[in-house]
Design a protein around this nucleic acid. Sequence first.
DNA 1: GCGACAG
DNA 2: ATCTTGTCGC
Length: 266
Amino acid sequence: MTRKPLFQSVIALLNFRVHNKWIGIQDSLKRQLITEDDFKWRLPPKINEREKEGSNCEILLKYVGGVDLSFSKEDSSIACGALVVLDFQTLKVVYEDSSIVRLHIPYLPGFLAFREAPVLLELLDKMKKNAHPFYPQLLMVDGNGLLHPRGFGLACHIGVLADLPTVGVGKNLHHVDGLTQSRVREIRQAADSPENVLPLIGDSGCTWGAAIQSSQGSLKPIFISVGHRVSLATAIETVKMTCRFRVPEPIRQADIRSRERLRNHQ
DNA sequence: GCGACAG
DNA sequence: ATCTTGTCGC
Ligand SMILES: [Mg+2]
């Protein structure tokens, strides 16, 4: 597809303006971001773990959500967004919804939220306005949170706009602040004992998240970061507790079911 | 100029 | 993200 240079310049200018607008939105929303625990529930005590004293909180974490999108191979603008809710203890799916939509915004690294967040926020909103009893107390997002060029990835974006505790989970490392795959390998070798939780500390000294080996079946790590209203420690713990396989079960189920729904469509 | 680039 | 088959191993 060849175009005259003038057209290309106009398109480049539009892209430049949209790009700046999006950065402005991310910077603006980031002012509402909360990066510590801010919720009324607590984690169920682990087996063999003594009940912590002073935890007068009676609400246990039970409903953990997961979101993901799948795309049509024929028409890459057709996508299915899925929201699932699992029982945190049994990891059984207790709620499932999905929506097939046409996307008008391409994938651009650093701007994933502008493509994927709208359909996912709609699925959450539908559940909330129906006052569904299984509305998630915590949401796991297939995409990063703080681990992002401007510290405001998809998980933060959804968390702030839905005012919901969220955790970001990346299957690949988005290079930020000098953090690369080889840098992660160095961090691993610098650890005194074979750790399966590695802090992701960038050149600036900032902690962007953690790389964890989440299952015995896979050596490849996943990359966890704070989304909204959770600390990194809580993010890591909840992800670990929901990993039957490499990808935490809420996200894995959203992935499986969104793809399945798309396959059975048309 | 070159490489990197969540999903 | 998707394109794609079998194959090795628990
Ligand atoms: Mg995905």
